[in-house]
Structures are given as C-alpha cells and as structure tokens.
C-alpha cells in the first residue's frame, strides 16, 4: 500500500503563535484520514501548508515520495491534489456548471489540448459530478444564488469532477441537514471505492466514525495522537481536550 501524500515535521508560526508544530502525517492510498481537534488547533493551516497556499517555516511535503515544498498551489493541484475550503470559495458570479468546468479545464487561450474528444469527456465529467451532487437542476444558477447545502455540494462537485486522487476536505459536512449529510457520506464512500485518498477535517464525530479509517488528533498546532477511530475516540484525555474541559 503506497503513501501518496506525506507530511514531515511541518512547522508554521504566525507572529508568535505556533499554528502548526512539527506535524507528521501520512495519507495512505485509499485510506480516509480524519483530522480532528478543537477550534484553532491548526487543521486548516495544515491544509494550506500541504497545498502550497502557505509556505511552511520548516518540514517537508512529499507527493509520491517527491518533495513539493515551495511549489505554488497550481503546481501541486496539477499533480492530483484537490481541496475544499472551510469558507467554500465558490466562483460566486459564475454558473454552477461553469464553476465545475473552470475547476477541471486546463487553461488555454482558445483550444484545449485534446480537442473535441477531450471536451466531450470534460462535459461528461461535469454532468456526472453535478448529478452525483444533486445539482443538475441548478446547473445554470449562479453559485451565489444557491442554498447553503447546495453550495457545500458544489464545492465537492468541483473536486469530484477533477478526478484528483487526493482530496483534502475542510469541514465539508458542517451545517448539513441529515438528508444532505447522508448524501455526502455516500459521495465520499463512492470516491473511496474508486481509489481516492481522502483527508477530511470534521467536527462531527458521527461523520468521523462513519467515514474515517484513521484519526489524527491536533491541538494547539501539535499532533497529539494518531490511530484507529476506536482508540482515539475512547481516549478520555483527547476527548477532554476536544470538548474543552482541559483548556486553560
């Protein structure tokens, strides 16, 4: 089993605040890892470091064993890493369909590589992603005009259509109603079945239990523990930190 994505000793300080301290994390192929921890633990920052949106102070980010440290986000994305944002960052004034199109098109002036064949394939991928995310009806609506759950699903549809093999999802299910949540869980399971490696930041421990094969527990920038869900979620010390009992 390969380790397509791996983080070694990653460090990041914001001013005096150590947002991420010496964190190691391996994403194993086809394994879903949940990143869990209280607010401000450094989870989003870890994603930003992994995708090149923020340059780390130290450490390594390896894709298939090769360093991608210091590479710009669009390079890392083109290597097959797709991510969502906690605040979604949809392309607000574009249609739902164009959001997904823009996410998967290689940029070119007029002619895309691959010509008509590739274009039809891309359109099929867009249609399939919209269908699986329940957005076919809304395809022509602008992203800003969508309802909350639809916006969340659009952020997943963009990723789904790319065909990326590594997904980093930042609280994709927060605030979803039970019906949408079930749809989301199914989406992730289907992706995993297709071989996608997923790392997911999630506060809802039910979803974590449903989806995660492994949990990494972060607090104040440091990884306190990593292991199978049963181990982590039964550790009274971690649960105490998570629910804020031991914070000073």
């Amino acid at each position: 089993m390969g380790v397509p994505f791996s983080i070694r000793g990653l460090d990041k300080k914001f001013g005096g605040l150590a947002a991420v301290q010496n964190v190691d994390l391996d994403l194993q192929e086809g394994v879903t890892t949940a990143l869990v921890g209280p607010n401000g633990a450094g989870k989003t920052t870890l994603f930003n470091l992994a995708t090149g949106h923020i340059i780390p102070d130290g450490g390594e980010v390896l894709l298939d064993g090769k360093s991608v440290l210091g590479q710009p986000p669009h390079h890392i994305a083109r290597l097959g890493v797709a991510r969502s944002f906690q605040d979604l960052r949809l392309f607000g004034r574009m249609s739902v369909r164009d959001n997904v199109r823009a996410a998967i098109e290689p940029t070119a002036w007029l002619w895309q590589p691959g010509g008509g064949v590739a274009a039809r394939k891309r359109e099929a991928a867009v249609d399939a992603a919209l269908d699986r995310c329940g957005l076919t009806q809304q395809a022509d609506a602008r992203a800003v005009d969508l309802a909350y759950a639809e916006r969340k699903f659009l952020s997943v549809a963009r990723i789904l259509a790319t065909g990326a093999r590594i997904w980093l999802l930042d609280e994709p299910a927060s605030g979803l109603d039970p019906h949408s949540r079930a749809r989301f869980v199914q989406l992730v399971r289907d992706a995993v079945a297709e071989g996608v490696t997923i790392c997911l930041i999630e506060h809802n421990l039910d979803i974590v239990t449903e989806l995660a094969d492994r949990i990494a527990f972060l607090d104040r920038g440091a990884k306190l523990a990593e292991g199978a869900p049963q181990e982590i979620l039964r550790d009274p010390k971690l649960i105490g930190i998570y629910f804020g009992e031991q914070r000073t």
């Binding site: 995708t51 949106h53 710009p72 986000p73 669009h74 994305a77 083109r78 797709a82 991510r83 944002f85 960052r89 949809l90 392309f91 607000g92 004034r93 574009m94 164009d98 959001n99 199109r101 823009a102 996410a103 998967i104 098109e105 290689p106 940029t107 992203a143 963009r158 790319t162």
Partner: peptide
Amino acid sequence: RALMAIRDSESAAEAFGK
C-alpha cells in the same frame, strides 16, 4: 472562465490548477 474564477476567488482558482 479561468479569469472569472480568479476574479471570484483567487485562492480557489489556484487550488484548481490555474
């Protein structure tokens, strides 16, 4: 589309390879 994506969210456009 790539330009409009950048207009609406630069960091997301980058995250999708732009």
